[in-house]
Simulated assay, not measured.
Amino acid sequence: MEAKYVFETEMEVRDYECDIQGIVNNANYLHYTEHTRHLYLQSLGISFARLHEKGIDPVVARMNLQYKTPLRSDDVFVSKLGIRKEGLRYIFNQDIFRKADNRLCLRATVELVCLINGRLGNSEDYDRAFGFL
């Protein structure tokens, strides 16, 4: 089954993101996936600051990461995401591909929930932006 993506962005590995083995340190993939989600939200006109002022805060509840092919310094990669909703959870399916050969480097599932004034709740703002209303 082919993944359905709703957003993608291109990035480049920077030298300081690599470990002594010359490959991207595993923790940096979290930054890549988070940056992709932020860019996606910006593309939809969502402002974290504005929603925070309204008492709406999305938080990561769970992540599952599968490392497939390592990225190295100066590699250009494409970060893609798809999204679905299950109950109160927004589930982002995120894949990172090395651009030179389209090899899958990371497959991630990231589950977010919204805190509304500090309590777990449903956000109509996010539902509307993501097309779930």
Rank of each mutant, 00 (worst) to 15 (best):
2 E>T: 15
3 A>T: 11
4 K>R: 13
4 K>Q: 15
6 V>K: 05
8 E>K: 14
9 T>R: 14
12 E>G: 08
12 E>H: 00
13 V>D: 02
13 V>C: 11
16 Y>V: 02
18 C>Y: 09
26 N>T: 14
28 N>K: 11
30 L>G: 08
31 H>M: 03
34 E>I: 08
38 H>E: 13
45 G>D: 05
45 G>P: 07
47 S>W: 00
47 S>N: 08
49 A>W: 02
54 K>M: 13
54 K>S: 05
55 G>I: 07
57 D>F: 15
57 D>G: 02
62 R>C: 04
64 N>S: 08
64 N>V: 13
68 K>N: 07
71 L>Q: 13
72 R>M: 12
79 S>D: 06
85 K>Q: 07
87 G>M: 14
88 L>T: 13
89 R>C: 06
90 Y>Q: 12
91 I>G: 13
91 I>K: 02
93 N>C: 10
94 Q>R: 06
95 D>Y: 08
95 D>P: 03
96 I>V: 15
97 F>T: 12
98 R>T: 02
99 K>C: 12
100 A>S: 14
100 A>L: 08
100 A>W: 03
103 R>P: 12
105 C>E: 06
105 C>G: 03
106 L>C: 04
106 L>F: 10
109 T>S: 15
110 V>G: 00
110 V>C: 00
112 L>A: 15
114 C>Q: 14
115 L>V: 09
117 N>R: 12
119 R>W: 11
121 G>W: 09
121 G>L: 07
122 N>Y: 11
123 S>T: 04
123 S>K: 09
127 D>P: 01
128 R>P: 09
133 L>H: 06
